[in-house]
């Protein structure tokens, strides 16, 4: 954590879906080099918050700042361009696309020269090369070829691809929605290592999770949400599992 400007600043964000008041004035800051865990019961607004930051929802009130720049018209593309990547709970992979195509979807490398550029002719060789490098960085080696379709992969492999994609493209921050929910213990540990390594390289990481014990080890700060609001922000050292669960379900008064 540093005293400088936050990479991501969420200011008074409100979001309604019909009668559901999903976010009720959320404020949050994520700094370079820190891992922020966001916990809360189902329906607390965690995923909505991540989607708002990622440019997937336009807030009804409030705004998001990325690197000091207020996002007036949020779109997924703009947020990507500002260096913020998201690993969605669904992973957001196209099952019929190859690993490389998924890795580059929306940011495909096109060949050189006027005609290729105009037609958008893919440089598949370069895409494959960079995909292999990106998978290598997150320790994924158990695939036959980056031209294999995502459908043919296991859940753990798909998850690794989504994480590799975010790590490869993020230049400021990574948002992860339940990155370890579907993983075995060993894979969970690896994902945590990847998260820590990303933070060590100066990225800000926000992790939405139900795995509180894990985050007491890996997170720098823990943000507790309830009913669409942030009810507590604490460091792992200053809290414990019972207190956090109490905050999540509302038995304990805010003591942060």
């Amino acid at each position: 954590m540093s005293s400088e400007q936050p990479l991501i600043k969420v200011c008074g964000v409100e979001k309604r879906f019909g009668h559901v008041h999903a976010l009720r004035g959320v404020d949050l800051e994520i700094f370079a080099g820190e891992v922020v865990a966001v916990i809360g019961d189902n329906g607390a607004g965690k995923s909505t918050l991540a989607t708002v930051i990622a440019g997937g929802h336009v807030p009804d009130a409030g705004w998001v700042e990325i690197a000091g720049q207020r996002i007036e018209k949020p779109t997924a593309r703009l947020v990507h361009e500002l260096g913020v990547e998201t690993v969605y709970q669904s992973l957001a992979l196209g099952p019929d696309l190859s690993i490389a195509e998924n890795m580059f979807l929306g940011r495909e490398i096109v060949g050189k020269g006027f005609v290729r550029r105009r037609l958008g002719v893919l440089d598949r060789r370069e895409m494959a090369k960079q995909t292999e490098a990106a998978l290598d960085r997150v320790g994924m080696t158990n695939y036959t070829t980056v031209n294999a379709s995502a459908r043919a992969l296991s859940g753990g492999q798909r998850q690794a691809i989504a994480v590799a994609r975010s790590v490869a493209w993020a230049s400021r921050a990574i948002l992860m929605d339940e990155p370890t929910a579907a993983l075995a213990i060993r894979q969970t540990r690896n994902t945590n290592e990847v998260i820590r390594a990303a933070a060590a390289h100066g990225l800000g990481v926000m992790v939405i999770t139900h795995d509180i014990p894990n985050m007491l080890t890996y997170a720098d700060r823990i943000v507790v949400m309830r009913h669409g609001q942030v009810v507590a922000v604490c460091t792992p050292a200053a809290t414990d599992l019972n207190k956090l669960v109490g905050l999540m379900v509302g038995e304990e008064q805010v003591a942060a």
Partner: peptide, 21 residues
């Protein structure tokens, strides 16, 4: 990437343990 900073290559090869086992 058009972002202000150059795209990072945050993790060097081998830095993360092998999930794939």
């Amino acid at each position: 990437t058009p972002s202000a900073r150059p795209a990072l290559t945050p993790l060097a090869a081998g830095e993360a343990p092998d999930v794939t086992a």
